[in-house]
Design a protein around this nucleic acid. Sequence first.
DNA 1: GACGCGTGGCC
DNA 2: TGGCCAAGCGT
Length: 359
Amino acid sequence: MISDHLQVIDFNKKLKSWYLKNHRPLLWRQTTDPYKIWLSEIILQQTRVAQGTPYYEKFLENYPTVFDLADADERDVLRLWQGLGYYSRARNMHFTARQIVSEFGGKFPETAVTLSKLKGLGHYTAAAIASFAFNEPVAAIDGNVYRVMSRIFGIRSDMLSNEGKKEFAKVAKALISQEDPATYNQAMIEFGAIQCVPVSPNCTICPFNDICYAYAYNVQNELPVKAKKLKVKNRFLNYFIIEQGGKLAMQERNTKDIWKGLYDFFLVESTARVESPEDLTDNDTLLALQRKGNIRQIPKLYIHLLTHQKLHVQFWWVTIPENEHLDLPGNIYFFSKNEVETLPKPILIDTLLKEEKYL
DNA sequence: GACGCGTGGCC
DNA sequence: TGGCCAAGCGT
């Protein structure tokens, strides 16, 4: 374990020198504006740089300051976020933008402790903003940093358990540079991201291969230790895309379920795959669709994978004649094609509408 | 503490 | 191919 002060100084020196030589010139590293740093950190949660970068640029164009984001409608924020996943990030970010404007006059709090009280900011993100924007010496420990520390120092406790987190936090606290915490944190993260990578790291060029526990015992692939994740559940979704006079019936998802805040179609869930709408349990809306509409089955069965759900999705396109009146459940409304385009939708719904040449 | 939350890229 | 997982957080 690292406890000796001189060892820490040596580690920091090597790390910083590696960083200055090897780091990528990412956009959000060219600023100390807490708004831009915050935006980048939220986008990058559980998200690869390549996937998040276009969203970072879009968001800064549309909402250059926290005031612009606070002024926006949540629906538009979600629409801009569409395709990035974990949509609560966008909802929380919007909520927090409004709070920063209304309670702090648009100025971000400057310490990790205060920042972490905001919605969507946990230990990691609060520490990242506090150190990158305000140079506070707090360790920002993300998945990369857990991996680096567990391998180099041979920490085998579960990084997802509270006990494990405490142990990692202790080591991180001993390591962090008091003089330049921003660069130290960036360097640890970047080192994990491009050198100490999860699979098949190239340890022969690693500046720490002389002290690394994992390299010495050839256990890079066993570290870090993470509790195993749960099994994927199968769900069977039957969507009815109700069209009348060119408009589509869509509903906002408001339940405690997937895709909260996004829009989809009239949905009947079943416990297994069904061949035809008649196999679904009776339901007034469904009966009305069968009576008044022309139902066309979309031939393809879509499989959509979420982190812990496998969705088996069957679509039916239902055309209702313009002179028919249809009673829809209270949360479903007809939207024009232009409106449908501007609504935030799960990527599956967006894909279907494009494949059906509606959008 | 356990679990839920998206999407796309990788092999 | 399908299993794995990427700069976490909220409940």
